[in-house]
Simulated scan of single mutants.
Amino acid sequence: MTDHSHTLFQPSAQSGPIDGTRRRLLLALAAAPLAGTLSLLPRRASAAASTSVIEGRNLWLYPGWESLTDDATPACLKAVDLIHETTGKLAAHGIQSVIVIAPLKARCCAENLPDGMTMSAGVAARYDAMRSHATSIGLPLVNAVEAIAGVDAAQEKYIRADYHWSGHASEAVAARVAKRLTSAGPLKGTAGAGTRLGKWNEEVRYGDLAALLPPDRKKAVGKDHFIVRTAGAAAGLVDGGPPVVQVVGNSMVQPYLGFPQKLSNAIDRTVGLTWTFGDTGPWKTLLNYLESPAFKANRPQALVWQFNEGQMMNLPSAAGQWDAASVMADDAFLDRVSKAIA
């Protein structure tokens, strides 16, 4: 599977919904080329195809490969420890970190799960368990569940027949990250370099989960209304310089859904972006950035590292969960981090 990284999002060159980018996202499906959908589907989803899609109430779809009963909390806490060890290495070189874990769609939109389907007690408590553990070891972990809960009731929190959170939820989490960053102290860089946000716009297409269904069910579920920003005005005559903050993550933080733009707007600074598909995984994605010429040329003041709750139990060594090039021993991952930032 091809590994696509999108690096150095610059507010002065607004990133709008680019058709070519959306087509490339489909490579994460490892399935039929269905144009015009977003995708973050991991390897095991493509293997099971439509059988991995849960049809809920009101034509809502959920990813069936993310278990609602097997909490795997101990493995998730080990991942939090590894994240903490990694961010400690970054901090020793003057780079602060903020961690974002995108919650399960079922956690934020449980009201449309199928009748009789609920999260187990362990899964229900898992997100708070990770947050509590992060707090106890001093890891800055943003409460994305709380941020998304605050989205206006008139707006979707996750896209009905798609894996991803909505543009409004993405921006709500980005705003929470901005508060965490600015509360840690003054940001470097030039004020006035932040992204100018465009107006909300509606685009109609099939969600990525709908695209996995058989044709008759896909037609019955229908297309989604993606509410996303149009490209805003350029930042003006201010030269924002290199990114003060770098976002590293998966397609939850891609420009189409507005995360880097909102973060840049909220902190009024230039924000860089490195994102890859879900198959690459958060560990290799971070290495992609730290081992890149962009990092060597400019070390940011802060790094925002984004994960998915449904993959938190998978460490770098989780063979079968990441593409082959992304699997490595946990110690090898830390060694590469140390070498990259030395």
Rank of each mutant, 00 (worst) to 15 (best):
N58R: 09
Q301D: 05
L286C: 02
T51V: 02
A72I: 07
V53S: 00
K179D: 10
A32R: 14
K199E: 15
F333T: 06
V245N: 00
V228C: 12
T69W: 09
L139P: 05
D335A: 15
G88M: 10
G20P: 05
W165M: 05
A319H: 10
T195D: 15
L287G: 02
T2N: 13
F259V: 12
E171V: 13
N112V: 09
R180F: 12
V123D: 09
N308M: 13
H168V: 07
L141E: 09
F295K: 04
G272W: 02
A178K: 04
D331Q: 14
V221F: 08
H4N: 13
A129Y: 09
K179S: 07
I83W: 01
I99P: 03
A30E: 00
E66A: 14
W65I: 00
N201P: 02
T2I: 13
S46C: 03
V142N: 07
L257D: 03
P242C: 12
K78D: 15
A332F: 06
T230R: 14
A234H: 09
R269M: 02
A220R: 14
L26G: 15
R229I: 04
L38A: 08
V253I: 06
D208Y: 02
L90Q: 04
L315T: 10
G122T: 02
T190V: 15
Q254M: 13
E85S: 15
L77S: 06
P242S: 13
V53G: 01
K89T: 12
A172E: 03
Y163A: 13
D71M: 05
A49P: 04
P17H: 12
E55P: 07
A129Q: 15
T195V: 12
L34M: 14
I137S: 09
V245L: 00
L315P: 07
N143H: 11
R24T: 09
E55K: 04
A102Q: 10
K199Y: 10
A49Q: 08
A121P: 05
G222K: 06
V244H: 08
Y206Q: 11
G192S: 01
